[in-house]
Design a protein around this nucleic acid. Structure first.
Length: 417
RNA sequence: CGGGACGUGGUGUAACGGUAGCAUACAUGCUUUGGGAGCAUGCAGUCCGGGUUCAAAUCCCGGCGUCCCGACCA
């Protein structure tokens, strides 16, 4: 992509209507646009990052047997009345709206109810189990207070995955697989080192659940971390569980953290409410055992910014970066650099490398500052200086490591990483 | 939902009740060209509705919106 054609612009000034670092940087860099408090649109660069994150999650969900669906965002109140969650007492943060022809609809804040109801049409025998279903869906939550930029919105993308198992044992085996898949996702997304499996209360559904908490001062949660086991306990259950659940040590370190994922055992909470039964091998009627597993890709994106950004701007891990390289041409007077840069750009594209080409007629300093702000992992500079040596300068965004290499070395480097 | 702060060009800011100014961005021209350059010219603004006043960005009332703390929550 040529930067001269990119419709978004960067800006020097920090937006005053944002406090959260993730929102400030993502807005300054042109990744997102704020529509209202807690409501953000994703612009070309931001969407590329979001899609990368979605792809990482999708791959892992497919690997554990997930079948992707896309349920509706508008929800039928009748379904929610069955589980008792339609009333504003049961769930305060509903967005509800009137249907002109009559009646009401809710904007889904989660999908246990509609999916359980739907699965009744498809599960009736032990042969139909287990089944795993997931989606990426916009969720709506009428938060009393939006904050933390894209980490807590009123409208946000969520990957929600639901497991339907024959019995508790089958469920637990899967639950462990899901846990591992989640660890893989956060590792791939570049925040594995600071993301910890966290024991938490199950909220309204179950006694226990696990969260994945990423340590950062921007976090809204407090966790107590066992630095040896890399396992934490959420403050909400710390009173009962104040030792490491793995090794039993007492010296847990208090940290602020963002909940980037959670997994719940739902038991029969929903299968019972909807009558989701099956007949086992002996012809006995049994309730399906369910679990639910969530990750907010947008929240994950915001968390990555919070954790990895420095004073100059965003620092993306390669796996989620909008482009792998940021090619910067420092133009000379006679136009040689421009020609060489165009050639290099085509060569990179031909090799399937994702490249943002800063072909704008700007001074070097401005381009470098933008490159730092945008946070693409590898900056590649071509200029009169590098042309003289028949080389290209590379600079890693994360480490500031600079090297002079040839075009073929660059292409090899990118193809092998 | 309780408490607090605030609302001026696209963005960031200034203006005692009395000419809405500066910076940046954008446009044009010239100079400049490895870390957000310089000069000139131009485009562009007081959240909405009432009220007080000869006169309101400024004071008063109401609304809407944004941020922060708390409660709540992926």
């Amino acid at each position: 992509m040529k930067q001269s054609k990119l419709f978004t612009k960067t800006r020097k000034e920090v937006p005053t209507n944002e406090e959260a670092k993730n929102a400030k940087l993502l807005i300054r860099a042109g990744y997102i646009h704020k529509e209202m408090a807690g409501v953000y649109s994703y612009l070309p660069l931001g969407l590329r990052v979001l899609n990368k994150i979605v792809e990482i999650i999708r791959r892992e969900m497919n690997a554990i047997g997930g079948q992707e669906v896309f349920l509706s965002a508008l929800q039928d109140p009748e379904i929610w009345k069955k589980s008792g969650r339609w009333s504003d007492e049961a769930f305060e943060n509903w967005f509800k709206t009137k249907i002109k022809a009559g009646g009401e609809a809710g904007l889904g804040f989660t999908h246990e109810e509609p999916l359980t109801n739907l699965m009744k049409n498809h599960i009736s025998s032990f042969r139909d189990l287990p089944r795993y279903v997931y989606q990426f869906q916009t969720k709506f939550r009428n938060e009393p207070r939006a904050r933390s930029g894209i980490i807590r919105g009123r409208e946000f993308l969520m990957k929600d995955f639901y497991s339907f198992s024959r019995d508790t044992q089958e469920h637990e085996i899967f639950y462990e697989k899901a846990k591992q898949a989640y660890q893989n996702i956060f590792a791939e997304a570049g925040i594995g080192a600071q993301t910890f499996l966290t024991f938490a209360s199950g909220g309204t559904f179950s006694k226990n659940s696990h969260e994945f908490q990423t340590a950062t001062d921007a976090g809204e949660d407090t966790i107590y971390l066992c630095e040896k086991c890399k396992v934490a306990v959420n403050k909400e259950i710390f009173v009962e569980q104040n030792t490491c659940p793995e090794c039993g040590v007492k010296e847990l370190v208090e940290k602020r953290a963002v909940e980037v994922g959670n997994i719940f055992s739902l038991g029969t909470r929903f299968s019972e409410a909807f009558g989701l039964n099956y007949l086992d091998e002996k012809g006995e009627k049994k309730l399906v055992i369910m679990g639910s597993y969530g990750i907010g890709p947008g929240r994950l994106m915001g968390t990555i910014v919070e954790v990895l950004a420095d004073e100059k701007g965003i620092v993306w891990p390669k796996t989620v970066a909008p482009f792998q390289i940021h090619l910067i041409a420092v133009f000379d007077e006679n136009g040689k650099v421009k020609i060489a840069a165009e050639k290099l750009y085509s060569a990179l594209l031909k090799n399937g490398i994702e490249v943002l080409f800063d072909d704008r007629d700007l001074r070097a300093g401005e381009k470098f500052a933008d490159a730092d702000l945008l946070g693409i992992p590898l900056r590649v500079v071509i200029s009169e200086k590098t042309l003289k040596e028949n080389k290209i300068e590379t600079k890693e965004r994360a480490t500031s490591e600079i090297s002079l290499i040839s075009e073929s070395e660059l292409i090899n480097l990118l193809n092998n990483s």
